[in-house]
Amino acid sequence: MAGSNPNAKPMDLTLKVWRQRNRTADGQLVDYQVKNISPDMSFLEMLDVLNEDLLHKGEDPVAFDHDCREGICGSCNLYINGRAHGPEPGTTTCQLHMRKFKDGDTIVVEPWRAAAFPVNRDLSVDRSAFDRIIQAGGYVSVNTGGVPDANEIPVPKSIADRAFDAATCIGCGACVASCKNASAMLFVSAKVSQLALLPQGQVERKTRVENMVAQMDKEGFGACTNIGSCAAECPVGISLENIAILNREFLAAKATSNNLA
């Protein structure tokens, strides 16, 4: 029952999958064979096939994070053949399709690697560090109610568009995973520049960047060395320009804020 391409032939593949029982256990790459993989399958559907197979054999399926499977929730996070989210640019793992691979291929699947992202099990990692960075200031402090009418805050379209471009970050962590330094600068910069661009974000502009960067450092992420892997692998195309904005915001805040700490 082929979808689009009736000529596409099913594939047999060798998988090398990182297996690790829990956070403290040792892990290793384990070889698996999957057969009859349709090119129209998504990568995660291929893993579903593997997992059903393992379950039937009485083995533990491979744990991996996923949810919406349409590229927006940011749950899925696989390092495939040495690339975050696999070989296809601008694509989350769930939107990567098997037609990008060939019959007989060997595919290595590893979890995101970062000190700040410990492995829960197999391919599932703990990305709560991102939440804690947002908690440090990735918001506009307004309570529910008592806000002005929406149209009382005009925003130039070009600014709104740039803010939106930054705001599309899905928090998947591919930037950290692909960065040689496991730096979270692209993630942090996306939120900082979204709110630095918008009028709503001006009030807390300085404290926000100071606190978010401090938390980022505390979590143990590396420092940005402007390599560009993050933006190249970002599935939603967050631009490096945001990192420059973050640097600028940080510098300005440190130079002029009243914070003596």
Binding site: K16, W18, G27, L29, Y79, N81, G82, V108, E110, R113, A114, A115, A116, F117, P118, V119, N181, A182, S183, G220, F221, G222
Partner: peptide, 10 residues
């Protein structure tokens, strides 16, 4: 240090 104890195999 930020990469953590286990790097990528590939």
């Amino acid at each position: 240090a930020a990469r953590g104890p286990q790097g990528y195999k590939v």
